[in-house]
C-alpha cells in the first residue's frame, strides 16, 4: 500500500491563505490512507476541527472509496457537488495519486493534505516498512527475496559497503546489513552466493509510468 504521513499543517494553512479560501471541502480515502491512519474518517474530522479552529468553514467532507480511481472519485465528487461548489478549495487527505485524481475531477483548487512517502509493507497495525521501489526490473530472484535496491540505504546491488560493522548497516545503524541478510539466507536455502549483479536498467522505470491493458494484450510500460 501507499504510505502517507500528515503534512506540516502550517503549509496547508498557507496554501489556503494564498488563495484566500475560507470555505473548504475535505476528501479522505478509504484505502491506503485509512489503513495508514492519515486520511480515514477520524483524520478527516480532525482536519475539519483544525480548519474550523482557524476560522474557516468546512462545507462538507467525504471519504472516497478508492480516491485514486478516476471513475469512483468522479462519482464521489458528483454526489457532493453542492458542498464542493460551496467551497473555495478542496483539501485531500490521500496520496499524491488521489490528490491528482480529485484535481482532475473537479474545477476547484485542490490541495494536498498529506505527504506520500513510500510503497509500504504493513508489518503490523500502524507499522509500515519500505521493501519495494517498483523499479521495473526485479532482482528478488537473485537476492533471496530481500530487495537491496530498497533496503540497502545506498541501494547497492552488490554489497556490503565499507561501513558494515558486525553485520550492521552503517547508515541506519540498528539495521542488519541487507547484503549480509541476503548472503545468509542464500546459504540457509542451500543456494549459491549472490552473483555480481549488473547495473540497473533505469530505462525500465522511465517517468511517467503508464500501463494500458486495452491497448496491447498483457500491457506495456
Amino acid at each position: 500500500m501507499i504510505i502517507t504521513q500528515s503534512r506540516d499543517w502550517e503549509r496547508i494553512e498557507a496554501d489556503l491563505d494564498e488563495i484566500g479560501a475560507s470555505r473548504v471541502f475535505i476528501m479522505g480515502c478509504g484505502q491506503c490512507a485509512t489503513v495508514a491512519s492519515t486520511g480515514g474518517e477520524k483524520e478527516v474530522l480532525e482536519a475539519k476541527a483544525k480548519l474550523e479552529a482557524s476560522g474557516r468553514t468546512v462545507t462538507g467532507w467525504t471519504i472516497g472509496e478508492v480516491t485514486c480511481h478516476s471513475g469512483g472519485t468522479g462519482l464521489d465528487t458528483r454526489k457532493r457537488s453542492g458542498d464542493i461548489e460551496a467551497a473555495e478549495a478542496v483539501l485531500v487527505l490521500a496520496c499524491g495519486a488521489g490528490v491528482q485524481t480529485v484535481a482532475d475531477a473537479i474545477a476547484k483548487p485542490v490541495f494536498p493534505g498529506l505527504e506520500s512517502v513510500f510503497l509500504g509493507n504493513v508489518v503490523r497495525h500502524g507499522v509500515f516498512e519500505e521493501r519495494c521501489q517498483m523499479c521495473g526490473e526485479c532482482v528478488l530472484d537473485k537476492t533471496a527475496g530481500i530487495c537491496p535496491v530498497t533496503t540497502c540505504p545506498k541501494g547497492l546491488l552488490n554489497g556490503p559497503c565499507g561501513g558494515m560493522w558486525d553485520g550492521k548497516c552503517e547508515v541506519v545503524v540498528d539495521r542488519e546489513c541487507t547484503h549480509v541478510l541476503i548472503q545468509r539466507r542464500l546459504v540457509e536455502q542451500g543456494r549459491h552466493a549472490q552473483e555480481v549483479l549488473s547495473p540497473k536498467d533505469y530505462s525500465k522505470k522511465l517517468k511517467p509510468g503508464s500501463v494500458n491493458l486495452r491497448e496491447k494484450k498483457g500491457g506495456s510500460r
Binding site: P153, K154, L156, N158, C161, K200
Partner: peptide
Amino acid sequence: KGVFDLDSTQ
C-alpha cells in the same frame, strides 16, 4: 541525493 547508479564492483 545519493546517486549510487553503479556500485564499486560494477
